[in-house]
Design a protein around this nucleic acid. Structure first.
Lengths: 242, 242
DNA sequence: CCTTATCGGTGCGATTCCGTACAGTAAAAC
DNA sequence: GTTTTACTGTACGGAATCGCACCGATAAGG
């Protein structure tokens, strides 16, 4: 079962484009493997390609002093990288890289610019995604400022689960700590709490979702607003319904 | 000295529009007083107007469970409210309201839509601001996740100072606590620390900036990236140069 | 198979920040 | 001028999280 359907049908943002628009993009789309840790965008450097994941997860990370980093956005098959390009800019102070390996379709920034220039109708589609992404970042700010590590971890696992096929999240505690901006040891002990409540199971380098609605309950309102927004904007349902 | 120059010249986003574009917006712009606490946008309700402040400060606030709120964006005379409208949507789950009283020019959402529909060139201008605003929110997420209250407070005061005329920030500790998502008492004691270092002076309901570069040093890298981005995008210098 | 690097489990004191509470003081309302 | 409200100062115990450090376990590489 190599690909049950064409790649572009597996990225929701592409799949929900009007057929005519998809056609004009399609010729420029190039399938790419997303290797773990591969850099998609480098801070303050011109962005070369936009990526539409069909599997795996890409993280957008903001950097601060003392090499402090934190995730400000997560991208899976519901979205795309390269929002700066969509907005007519060519760079961003954030970094973007592959967090969970997978596959993507990518398009050169110049090609993308030309295509959306020629098809203004298409822009609306991508602007909706920009709107969603902003709300996601806003709620990351909210979670970072007001939620406990346990809740933020639950939120992150739910967001990752939304974007992956199956229930396994292949990620080390170290990476997770970087995403959340907390200690690695803090992630480890908090994961144990979740495991003890039978919400997840743990193996080396992998977290498996056991009880999704239990995790949603534990996240207690910190998860969900951006997801509802995505549904309003595009009709996608994620895994909320199973 | 009522208005040394027309209102629209005091909002940088308007002032830096190409003259032709400004003309087409101008007829729809209506001067408005920004009363403290006035709601500019209500969560999940259609946005009626977009505001271009010429003085005062508007806050964009995300809400979470248990009525927990936190500021995710700040708008002064460098910017505008209503980014959702710019992106072709009509609402947002965030709230937006006046944090420091002042004046603004506003335009009805429908008028704005018509104007930018007719003048695609203008969109680029506002998209740059959207880009800046996203980066600002991203760095708020970074600050919330990794910086101490002292640094976050310094960052907020610097951002407010950038947007106000003069060195006085008329705000209570209570509001500030809401913005930062920390206890009111925490703000009070932290402000005293800054005062003891002669960086600010305190009066009831007012904070006065004394030593801006000292505050920047204290914020230690948590402040500055979005501001540099704004400069790159628009050439505005804020007060960084005195 | 053996070595080496990565990853995970655990502990401990220090620090930051919270929740709560109460009293004093300045401004606003009457 | 008096009352009322809003704002600020301060305190205290406790919870959450940090920084660091060390060791065992698992996987990867030679």
């Amino acid at each position: 079962m190599a690909q049950p359907q064409p790649f572009h049908r597996q990225n929701h943002l592409l799949a929900s484009l009007p057929p005519a628009d998809l056609t004009s993009l399609e010729t420029h789309l190039e399938p790419m493997e997303l290797g773990i840790r591969h850099a998609i965008e480098i801070a303050n450097k011109p962005i070369k390609h936009l990526y539409f994941p069909v599997s795996g997860i890409i993280s957008v990370v903001a950097s601060g002093p003392r090499n402090h980093k934190i995730e400000v956005g997560i991208i899976g098959k519901e979205g795309m990288s390269g929002i700066s390009i969509v907005l007519g800019d060519d760079r961003t102070p954030n970094e973007t890289y592959v967090q969970v390996a997978g596959f993507a379709l990518r398009i050169a920034a110049d090609d993308f610019r030309h295509v959306i220039h020629a098809a203004p109708s298409m822009r609306h589609h991508f602007f909706q995604y920009v709107q969603f992404f902003m709300i996601q970042t806003a709620h990351t700010a909210l979670a970072n400022g007001r939620a406990k590590v346990e809740e933020r971890l639950a939120r992150w696992l739910l967001m990752a689960h939304d974007r992956l096929d199956g229930d396994e999240i292949p990620l080390t505690h170290e990476f997770l700590a970087l995403m959340l901006g907390v200690r690695r040891a803090g992630v480890t002990t908090t994961l144990h709490v979740l495991e003890a409540r039978a919400l997840i199971s743990l193996e080396r380098g992998r977290i498996t979702m056991i009880d999704r609605s239990g995790l949603e309950a534990l996240a207690d309102g910190i998860y969900g607003v951006p997801e509802a927004e995505y549904r309003r904007l595009t009709g996608w349902r994620g895994k909320t319904q199973g």
